[in-house]
Design a protein around this nucleic acid. Structure first.
Lengths: 329, 329
DNA sequence: CCTATAATTCTCAAATTGAGAATAAGGAAG
DNA sequence: CTTCCTTATTCTCAATTTGAGAATTATAGG
């Protein structure tokens, strides 16, 4: 339960000087790295559920972003490079146990390496722990079957009109029936599960949901407050952005092989790519340049080491890693 | 000056109960329509500069979005359909005359038609009044020459290092030198002008800028507070989104001709498109369907009337109006 | 030397794009 | 009613970009 964990993400209750609403503003960061081909996110372990590094906006913070950086650094001793604002959440509905309106501004940060995580309770976690249905690298995840079942029962429980709408939404989001899987609909999927009550957060928040606690989809970790929602927003944003901006390089070491780059993109997108076409795209777009060195780490033929070509930022209008999917699972 | 206009966007000063910062949260809407092939935005005329419909978040607002809708409706009697959150601005630097941290959450709203604007001081304005350099439909806008000149002087005024960085940024943003024009860099361009002090807001905010007031780029309207920044964010977002999501249809009437659709996209993107290729894209993607009727409004051959095919939302993963540019101005 | 493994290059058909010519269907002018 | 003007619409064609798979190369290990 959220109320058990009175760590830094608990919020103070402000008093408004006049009728107008004041809000304590929470800042929360999704700090992403990719280690050994797995996407990782920095999490704060608390008694119950995990939390994102977060804290309230304070007077000494010159900008929202500096406030965020400060909180992440004190809580995880991780310095941030690339940072981008995601979304501001402010529903009254969620977190009903607080008088002040909980306003949280979510940020996405990309860092180069997942070091052992500075502080004792900060830990790097595979982000698919929170969204096991998002990892299609090994084909359709088994958990989708459970989800599909639960969503069908949820759809059936509605009125005739609701039924069709719900069924369509479920198929569209999770890619069955007519629709096909879309890697970017991460938030849509999480929100759908929340609405249907298939996720513990919905019950904890006291949201009016159809599902009984017994329907909860198991095998996925929940998070404190609205942090899993923020994480879903981050994954969605990153998966979208990777395709038209060269942001993957923010999580790569200075030198890397093309297959490492590919596996990093695959890790983030949760999809398998066709290797020859992937390299063709990356090279044709001039995203990387030769270092001259080779790396013989893997079993087979040694791979050339390349580095990101910063010049592309100037040359091309919107270079990203377009995804050459392979149709075979 | 911002302090002259004590209308609804003036903000109250909250008192924090403890050390932590409280902020009055302002909501601001960029309400967009396209009338007679010109992109319009709803503006509130005040004594000095224009403002966006806006107001503080209040206790009775259940969600941020309902608060926003309420403010827009009371100020402009315009009901909103499609609404999307843009960004939360919270720099301490801007608006130094306020004790409370001004936090403003910007929204983009799309509406179907620009009616004469309900209230007396709400008015539909061509959005290129605020950004004349953004309209390339008639070729490169004349004002770019002035901007280029002023930015060159700004670049030259820096140290050797600064000079190169500034020159590169200017060229990249405004598409001269090596770089080419990118319709989506709207915010980047506005921020650059602000930083260089070429825009009245920078001086009004007391920002530390190079330019003397005499350098200000004339022929563009400023706005209250950070509203022009929010507008720039909206234009950028819309120009980006139009290419991969069928959002144009939110500003179209239920039935329309393909050339009207094209001119609407052109109005928003500020670019000319190649008509035959535009229709090919729209039709191949199944974005529209026949109504059977024709419209003989224009001089030449009567055009078929089509409507948006809602089914595409289910069928295709990310259908938008890709932009088949024509190379000739 | 043979084999497994991974990296890399080639090939080829299919689809998409960019550009312009050509055609069609009305209204207005004569 | 013929001609011209205007806009809508269809065609064509070359160039580029994709998707998919086969083939080749370079190492390490037996």
């Amino acid at each position: 339960m959220a109320s058990n964990t009175s760590t830094s993400h608990a919020r103070a209750r402000p008093i408004a000087a006049d009728g107008s609403d004041t809000a304590t503003v929470g800042l929360a960061a999704v700090v992403v790295a990719v280690t050994e081909d797995e996407p990782k996110v920095l999490a704060i372990r608390s008694v119950g559920e995990d939390a994102l590094p977060s804290g309230p906006l304070e007077p000494q913070h010159r900008t929202l972003e500096t406030g965020l950086r400060a909180w992440v650094e004190t809580q995880t001793s991780q310095k941030l490079g690339y940072v981008e604002q995601l979304y501001t959440f402010g529903d009254r509905n969620r977190q009903p146990d607080s008088v002040a309106r909980p306003l949280s501004i979510g940020y996405l940060a990309l860092v180069r390496e997942a070091r052992p995580a500075g502080s004792r309770d900060a830990e790097w976690r595979d982000w698919y722990r929170y969204f096991p249905w998002e990892d299609w690298r090994g084909g359709r995840p088994a958990i989708i079957a459970d989800i599909q079942g639960a969503l069908s029962r949820w759809a059936a429980a509605g009125t005739a009109d609701e039924r069709r709408v719900r069924e369509a939404r479920a198929q569209l989001s999770f890619g069955y029936g007519g629709a096909q899987w879309n890697d970017e609909r991460v938030l849509e999927r999480y929100e759908l599960l929340y609405e249907a009550g298939l996720v513990p957060e919905a019950h904890r928040d006291g949201a009016k949901v159809w599902a009984k606690p017994g329907e909860i989809i198991l095998g996925a970790d929940a998070m404190v407050a609205d942090h899993r929602r923020i994480l879903a927003t981050a994954v969605a944003r990153l998966r979208g952005k990777i395709k038209y901006r060269p942001v993957v390089f923010e999580v790569m070491p200075p030198e890397f092989t093309l297959s490492r780059l590919q596996r990093t993109v695959e890790a983030l997108a949760g999809l398998r790519l066709h290797a020859p076409n992937f390299r063709r795209l990356v090279e044709n777009q001039g995203l990387v340049e030769e270092t001259g060195a080779v790396s013989a780490e893997t079993g087979g033929r040694p791979a050339r080491l390349v580095r990101f070509r910063r010049e592309v930022l100037v040359e091309r209008p919107a270079p990203g890693v377009r995804l050459p999917l392979s149709r075979r699972g």
